[in-house]
């Protein structure tokens, strides 16, 4: 359904002070479902997400969307591992991305209430966001990322700091979002979560895309030794 995809990445690299954070990456993503990026620590998962999102500078290579870049950036949002809470009420946090986009106040408020309901924060609309619990904050961050109806949402370890119940709630929301056709690209350390949510998998190692396959193929029969080892829980570098 999306006119943003396919997304084509060729020879993309991010360097900081001469050191390569991620890349060179070659990757083509089609327009469906959720893509889960996995791999050992320091493999460059977060850097890849930031690079695709345009939040990290591209040192060399190219990232091409099917539409123009402005439009692509307009239609995507990002959820961070540690949610960034604006020092405002829950309601104002939800309204913020809409107000930035000049959505009229009344409409923005209606949408904020709608999304608060969806993620179970209905009773907390007037609360000051920075004092919410970790799970509530991440749900708020998720709702705030979804409220502009993006076609693509990046999620960087969205459940890393959360307990089982909060993780399940977040996953339910993500499944619902996926069902509406929104593309998800997320990283996770939790293999169970990867299996539950992934339609396709990108396995990263040492800053590069080591393997890219459908979830079924990857989990049943990974192509590389390292991916197999990683799935087995062995230490992979």
């Amino acid at each position: 359904m999306s006119d943003m995809f396919p997304l084509t990445v060729t020879g993309a690299e991010t360097r900081r002070r001469g050191k390569i954070l991620v890349g060179p990456v070659d990757l083509t993503l089609a327009g469906q479902g959720s893509c889960v990026v996995i791999g050992p620590n320091g493999a460059g998962k977060t850097s890849l997400l930031r690079l695709l999102h345009g939040a990290a500078r591209l040192s060399t290579g190219e990232i091409t969307w099917a539409c123009d870049v402005e439009q692509a950036h307009h239609d995507q949002s990002f959820v961070f591992q540690r949610p960034v809470m604006l020092r405002r009420s829950v309601e104002d946090n939800l309204m913020y991305p809409l107000r930035i986009r000049k959505v009229p106040k009344a409409e923005a408020r209606d949408l904020a209430h709608h999304w608060a309901e969806k993620v179970g924060l209905r009773d907390m609309l007037k609360r000051h966001a920075p004092v919410l619990s970790g799970g509530e904050q991440q749900k708020l961050a998720l709702a705030r990322a979804l409220i502009t109806q993006p076609k693509l949402v990046f999620l960087d370890e969205p459940c890393a700091a959360l307990d089982g119940r909060a993780t399940r709630e977040i996953e339910e929301i993500l499944n619902a979002v996926r069902a509406t056709g929104t593309r998800l690209i997320m990283t996770t350390h939790n293999m169970g979560q990867a299996r539950r949510l992934a339609d396709e998998v990108v396995f990263m190692r040492q800053g590069r895309v080591h393997e890219h396959a459908s979830a079924e193929t990857f989990f049943d029969a990974p192509a590389s030794e390292q991916a197999q080892a990683f799935l087995n829980g062995d230490i992979v570098e």
Partner: peptide
């Protein structure tokens, strides 16, 4: 706020007003 506002493609002026308000 840096990462969030950059991610939201917030204009320079909006960054300033957001910071001042919060």
């Amino acid at each position: 706020y840096h990462d969030l506002l950059i991610s939201m493609n917030v204009s320079q002026w909006q960054k300033i007003t957001t910071l001042l308000w919060d």
